[in-house]
């Protein structure tokens, strides 16, 4: 029994560390696209799905995945249709999602929805999570040149042959998939934080693209590692996660540019 618990905890830690790399990469490009706040906000698009899943007694991740996917497509479609900045559209979808989520989520489950829950992870769950995190890392790596060109100038990217609209959609979907994988461990609030804070730390430390990506991934991995350590040794789950947010914020404020 003890061996099984240890194996399961090992899976959780390994998967969380791999996810941290994915979140660091996605967060880095999110920061450059000025979508960092969207990380926190998009994660709330999962709330209505989580709430409904709790109500209907089905796997919360299925509910979260459904509303995240639909929300992402809605954001992309509205952005294309209206020409407004992504953050404006995300703000609108966020407000609606949070309202619906708060209304439908049972009181007993709200903490789990917001902060996540440390569940024992099966080998299948571990493999699925690893596949998803690995896919996010590979996809972002594959998209990186197109993302850089689009970030610099959508017009120049389009003239070069980049399908800008498709790149934006792929990135939004990867962004949402990252949040979905993160929801398994951290809940909607902390998943958003893991996308935002390491990227912001990385940006404070360097001016070069490759260094920035590495710094963000490192900050993300160290945060998750430290979080696990705090969680299992010193303080309660919610306090360790609150400390994570405030600790990272202090690093961002203290570091020179």
């Amino acid at each position: 029994m003890s061996w099984l618990t240890h194996t399961s905890a090992g899976y959780s830690v390994l998967l969380a560390l791999l996810f941290a790399v994915a979140a660091g990469l996605v967060g880095s490009f999110g920061l450059m696209k000025r979508m960092l706040l969207a990380g926190d906000v998009i994660s709330h698009v999962a709330l209505p799905g989580l709430g409904l899943a709790f109500l209907l007694k089905i796997n919360p991740l299925i509910g979260a995945a459904t509303t995240l996917f639909l929300g992402t497509l809605l954001i992309w479609h509205l952005q294309k249709k209206t020409g407004l900045a992504t953050e404006n559209i995300i703000g609108v979808v966020f407000a609606a999602s949070l309202g619906i989520g708060a209304a439908v989520t049972p009181n007993d489950d709200i903490i789990e929805a917001l902060f996540g829950k440390n569940l024992a992870i099966s080998l299948f769950g571990f493999l699925l999570g690893t596949l998803a995190a690995g896919f996010i890392i590979a996809a972002i790596w594959n998209l990186r040149d197109r993302l850089v060109l689009t970030l610099f100038s959508p017009d120049l990217a389009a003239v070069t042959g980049v399908n800008v609209s498709r790149v934006n959609l792929y990135f939004l979907l990867l962004f949402s998939l990252t949040i979905l994988v993160g929801l398994r461990f951290m809940g909607s609030l902390l998943t958003g934080s893991l996308i935002i804070l390491p990227a912001a730390i990385g940006r404070r430390l360097t001016n070069k693209m490759s260094h920035f990506l590495i710094a963000s991934c490192l900050a993300s991995t160290l945060s998750v590692g430290a979080g696990f350590l705090l969680n299992t040794t010193l303080v309660s789950q919610i306090w360790s996660r609150t400390l994570y947010r405030h600790g990272c914020s202090l690093i961002i404020c203290d570091q020179p540019v």
């Binding site: 042959g161 490759s210 260094h211």
Partner: peptide, 26 residues
């Protein structure tokens, strides 16, 4: 294409080499 101006975010952690390499790789 050389546009009249590019409204690129000057805060991007992007060097000239990063930019040229991105297009060359693509």
């Amino acid at each position: 294409y050389v546009p009249q101006r590019v409204a690129a975010d000057r805060q991007l952690p992007l060097s000239v080499r990063d930019l040229l390499n991105a297009k060359a790789h693509f």
